[in-house]
Design a protein around this nucleic acid. Structure first.
Length: 110
DNA sequence: TTTCTGACTCGAA
DNA sequence: CTTCGAGCCAGAA
C-alpha cells in the first residue's frame, strides 16, 4: 500500500505491527516516528479503533510503562497476560523491566 | 453538517 | 512538589 494514501491511524497500525515479539513501545515514540511528535494522543485513539485490525495493541503502553489501555481488552488482565506471555514483566498495571523490553521505532526501525 | 470525546505527552506556572 | 493547557485525528450521534 502507498503510505501517502494511508490515514494517520493506518500509519500507526503499520508501526505497531512491526513491534517485535516480547517488546513494547509507547505512544509518543510512534507519533515521533511518524513525524508527529505532538500527536501521541492520536496514537492512543488509533489503538481504540484498532480492535478490528491485526494490530498487537497490547504491546503499546504509555510513557511510564503503565497499561493505560488494558481496560479496553476483554477480561480484567488480558493485556497484562498477553505481555507476560511474551516475557514482559508486568506488575500493578506497569511494565517493570521497561528499559529491557522497550522498542523505539525511531531507533530500532529506520 | 456540527459537536463531542477518547489507550498521551510535555512544558509552563 | 502539583496542576493545567495545548496540540492532534477519526468515528459516532
Amino acid at each position: 500500500m502507498k503510505p501517502e494514501t494511508l490515514s494517520f491511524f493506518d500509519r500507526v497500525y503499520e508501526v505497531v505491527r512491526q513491534i517485535p515479539y516480547g517488546r513494547v513501545t509507547n505512544y509518543g515514540a510512534i507519533a515521533k516516528y511518524l513525524g508527529a511528535a505532538r500527536s501521541s494522543r492520536l496514537v492512543g485513539y488509533a489503538m481504540n479503533a484498532s480492535h478490528n485490525k491485526d494490530v498487537p495493541s497490547h504491546r503499546v503502553v504509555n510513557r511510564k510503562g503503565l497499561l493505560t489501555g488494558k481496560h479496553h481488552f476483554e477480561g480484567t488482565h488480558l493485556m497484562q497476560q498477553l505481555l507476560e506471555n511474551e516475557g514482559v514483566v508486568v506488575e500493578d498495571n506497569q511494565v517493570q523491566n521497561l528499559n529491557e523490553v522497550y522498542w523505539d521505532p525511531v531507533k530500532e526501525l529506520r
